[in-house]
Design a protein around this nucleic acid. Sequence first.
RNA 1: GGCCCGUUGGAGAAGCGGUUCAACUCACUAGCCUUUCACGCUAGCAUUCACGGGUUCAAAUCCCGUACAGGUCACCA
Length: 499
Amino acid sequence: MLLARGRQTYYNELKTLRRQTMKNVRVRYAPSPTGYLHIGNARTALFNYLFARHHEGSFIVRIEDTDVKRNVDQGIENQMNYLKWLGMDWDESIDKPGAYGPYRQLERHEKLNVYKDYANDLIEKGLAYKCYCSPEELEAEIEEKKARGESNLHYSRKCLGKPDQDAPYMVRFKVPDETTYTFDDIVKGEVTFRSEDVGDWVILKRNGIPTYNFACAIDDHLMAISHVLRGEDHITNTPKQLMVLDAFDWKHPTYGHMPLIVNDNHKKLSKRDADIIQFIEQYHKLGYLPDALFNFIALLGWSPDKKEEILSPEELIKRFDETRMSSSPATFDKEKLAFINNRYIKALSNEEALDLCKPFLIDENIGLEQDESWFVDLIEVFKDRLSFGAQIVDLYRDFFEKPFILEGDVLEFIKQDGVKALLETFKNMVENMDPLASDTLKKAIKEAGKETGMKGKMLFMPLRIAVSASMHGPDLPKMMNLMGKERLIKRLEYTIRHL
RNA sequence: GGCCCGUUGGAGAAGCGGUUCAACUCACUAGCCUUUCACGCUAGCAUUCACGGGUUCAAAUCCCGUACAGGUCACCA
């Protein structure tokens, strides 16, 4: 090994540590700071988190920032904040140093020279070599092969065995001949790749920074990662990482490749997919609840063994079973998300629901002149039908601003005998009511029923229709109260005229 | 093109050789319920698991092939 003395000590210490923790479950989520927290990343993080917590292991967040050009300011900060917002915490990371740090690859590269050391070691053993080809040369090589119709677009190895030159170079891994890489994937079962299918790939870029596959394999080992749970798009990376592990005679972690999340067209969820909201931050801003999202994401490629699908984070941790991950793609079902989030909103207290919704109303200048009790009434009436917080604005507008039209079955229903008398009786009561209140309205409904001899469905349905033009909806007295006296009377009159 | 993975109702999704195995959820449809919640309750909704062949006493479940779909083949991660 070509390690400096100080670093040698570092590695020795790590080795001892790894022995001690070998039996522990240690998983990692390894985001790159190239963007904000995406639904796909969140799923990867979440499954690793659930797996770690279920098995009482460690959950590590390692930053893979080796693509210096694409790194985005605030990328990591945003991702970690939203991981927390979703309800995940971790045991080791850049903000929570553990024994296996540093947890940022660029830092490992710059301060400890980790990857270069190992790359040099491979070069010395003849398992890797320097490549002096220019990007243009490489591109030309590929174009040529394509033109000849070759299916194997792998690097020609023309730099293999070249003497050292005083020129920029990258380091390529010399892929072994006729070697089979088989691993028992938790999700997919036994998967096999042949080394012929992998070209000599770059482990160190021209700028000296390692490529993903190299850094990842090394760090997974150095950090004693026991299980690697990641998206299926990584499955073809696995043989590359296995050959690095083998080159150093390191133990393989257990791999599990989770199904891709696809859109309605069964295409991999892409950040450019305009149809689906992609970033957790956006869901937050629309008034989705973290636990609901946590629940929904956990169902992307995994299903519980019991019937119930609405599960709290604690229940999910308890029930998580990695063998129940699906091997076919998980479709992002927007309707299901809406349903799940609605279930969580319904479970909120009125105060919590108000906190969630009020900002959206204020943003739209709705209810500025109203007092707090008006907001409480509004939320109470609509809470059960909200798919997400911001929807309160639409619900408000539908209720207060949509034209009131009676037609179809609704009109049919109120044309029945006795409806007119009922509505008129009720209207008179409302006219004498000052101010309006839910409980007085409720009493008035009873009273009007008694007076006109209408009861049950024949009592409530006409009134419901007369105020909302619908046969379904929220609690009747509360809805009337929210509507206000003037509008309520107007609608009753309008309905009576149309009988 | 090579390699890898997948294909169960309108949608999500379970089941992975045989005891109600075609669960469950969403959506939809129908009926019903309220003088304390009509986004509530109940019921209905794939005689069939892409297609073709094979193995087996027995296959959605195992094997082979076809079709279709996707992923991946970067000095990105």
